[in-house]
Amino acid sequence: MLFGKVKFLGRSGIIYSEGKRNLSLLSEMLAGDDFDLVIYLSRASHWEDGTPLSAEDKARIQANIAEELKSSRIDWN
């Protein structure tokens, strides 16, 4: 079940929201033999309101983004 909202900002950014909290994530589209999407979740350390991200937060965010991509028929492993 998806508990967060994912908004893609073109080729190089994602805004992830849970309730009233937002998180800006760096991402980039890569082109080669296949197209790939790299999301730099490891670089995120705080929600935009200054609340630190826990390891549990990051795991939940990753799972929610993966679910959103899957529901959009985008494979992200």
Rank of each mutant, 00 (worst) to 15 (best):
K5P: 01
K5M: 09
K5D: 13
V6S: 07
F8W: 05
F8E: 00
L9T: 00
G10P: 01
G10E: 03
G10F: 07
R11A: 14
R11F: 15
S12G: 01
G13E: 11
G13T: 09
G13M: 14
I14W: 13
Y16D: 08
Y16H: 11
G19I: 12
G19M: 10
N22S: 07
N22Y: 10
L25G: 06
L25H: 08
S27T: 06
E28P: 00
M29T: 11
L30T: 13
L30Y: 09
L30R: 14
G32H: 10
G32N: 12
G32I: 10
G32E: 15
D36Q: 14
D36M: 09
I39K: 03
I39N: 05
I39L: 09
I39V: 15
L41Y: 06
A44C: 11
A44Y: 09
A44V: 10
A44F: 12
A44Q: 09
H46R: 04
H46C: 05
W47N: 01
W47G: 03
E48A: 08
D49I: 01
G50N: 05
G50I: 06
G50M: 08
G50W: 09
G50R: 02
T51H: 05
P52T: 12
L53F: 09
L53T: 11
L53C: 13
S54M: 04
S54I: 03
S54P: 08
A55G: 13
D57Y: 01
D57C: 06
K58H: 02
K58Q: 03
A59L: 01
Q62P: 00
A63I: 02
A63P: 04
A63H: 08
N64R: 04
I65P: 00
A66D: 05
E67Y: 06
E68Q: 12
L69V: 07
K70N: 10
K70A: 11
K70V: 02
R73W: 05
I74E: 06
I74A: 07
D75H: 08
W76V: 12
N77E: 15
